[in-house]
Amino acid sequence: MSKGHKGFPWNHVIGFFLSIALTIFAVLMVQYTDFSKSTVMFIIGTLAILQAAIQLFMFMHITEGKSGVINIINITYSVFLAVVIVVGSIWILTTGHAAH
């Protein structure tokens, strides 16, 4: 169990606080600025991708492990899920009845 984990887990702590900071930043930006809707969406989208990257590197051990194949399968599946959920939801909720 203790093998391979030496010292204080700085990565986790930094990643944790960065994630919280990015989330709070997104909320503050929406609450207290009056950017146009497309600007807001752009900034939130960028923050989301940034946060996903932080999670991958700080928590998800993407740089560890011998087998690159497993990482590729994981990432492909995650991207597939993210696209289905995000693009699918936007498509469903902005077309049809909701568009009128």
Partner: peptide, 8 residues
Amino acid sequence: TMGNSGAV
């Protein structure tokens, strides 16, 4: 029946 577009 929520009122999605035909394509959806």
